[in-house]
């Protein structure tokens, strides 16, 4: 195998993106645990942790630019670098939404009280968690078929999101909320909006991984 140093640098790049992805996935899981258990200390740790994700973002961008400037990457190598360069922005944005959720948890400081059934909310949380995990796994070499199902899974998330919003608005309109729960409802509306956006970024990652593996630019639409 020729170009040993280059091959090693590409490998390092991919490992860094995977490490950033794992860190981001853990943040998503932690913030949702913090939300569920009203663990403000955990939420604070998640907020502090975002610096690490941002550091990865800058480091990986620099690695990509060095490879592009010095190695004239082609074919799959080029697609790996282009995908990594775009994907870290998705991960970084997911990290920012996690911080937004964590700040809501800290601000509430107590278990969330909502006037509707929690089933759909629990389903939304579970779906978003698994999509983030799957998007990173496909980049790391997992089953690309999973990435192909992302659009359909995102449709389900969008449906849940709209459904919950509708229920909340109805509850507010029908005066089912006490003075105390109104602010919880407002927080929850923000939180599910952030979750829905996180899923959109996971879809982006899935599409980019499909492009990386197969080279078809239709995935970049």
């Amino acid at each position: 195998m020729a170009r040993n140093r280059y091959v090693r640098k590409l490998k390092e790049l991919r490992q860094n993106v995977v490490d950033m992805g794992v860190l981001t996935r853990r943040s998503v899981e932690d913030v949702l645990t913090a939300l569920e258990t009203s663990d403000t200390a955990l939420a604070e740790r998640v907020i502090a942790n975002d610096d690490e994700i941002d550091k990865f973002d800058r480091k990986i961008e620099s690695q990509c630019m060095t490879l592009l400037a010095l190695e004239q990457p082609m074919a799959k190598d080029l697609r790996v670098i282009a995908t990594s360069l775009k994907m870290i922005t998705d991960l970084e944005r997911i990290g920012d939404f996690v911080v937004d959720i964590a700040e809501e948890v800290v601000a509430m400081g107590k278990p969330i009280r909502i006037p509707v059934s929690a089933t759909k909310f629990d389903e939304l949380v579970a779906d978003v968690k698994s999509m983030v995990a799957d998007s990173i796994e496909t980049y790391a070499g997992g089953d690309i078929q999973k990435a192909r199902s992302f659009e359909a899974r995102d449709d389900r998330i969008d449906f849940l999101y709209k459904n919950i919003v509708e229920n909340m608005v109805n509850a507010l309109a029908q005066g089912k909320c006490s003075t105390e729960t109104v602010s919880d409802v407002a927080s929850l509306l923000y939180i599910i909006r952030y979750l829905e956006r996180i899923a959109d970024h996971a879809v982006n990652i899935g599409n980019r991984v499909c492009y990386m593996e197969e080279g078809d630019r239709r995935y970049l639409k």
């Binding site: 195998m1 020729a2 170009r3 280059y6 091959v7 990457p73 082609m74 074919a75 799959k76 190598d77 080029l78 697609r79 197969e214 080279g215 078809d216």
Partner: peptide
Amino acid sequence: LFERPRDKRTEDYVTGKFG
């Protein structure tokens, strides 16, 4: 050919990993 070659030999050649 340079973004998504079909043949493994082309891929190896354009990425400089031949031989």
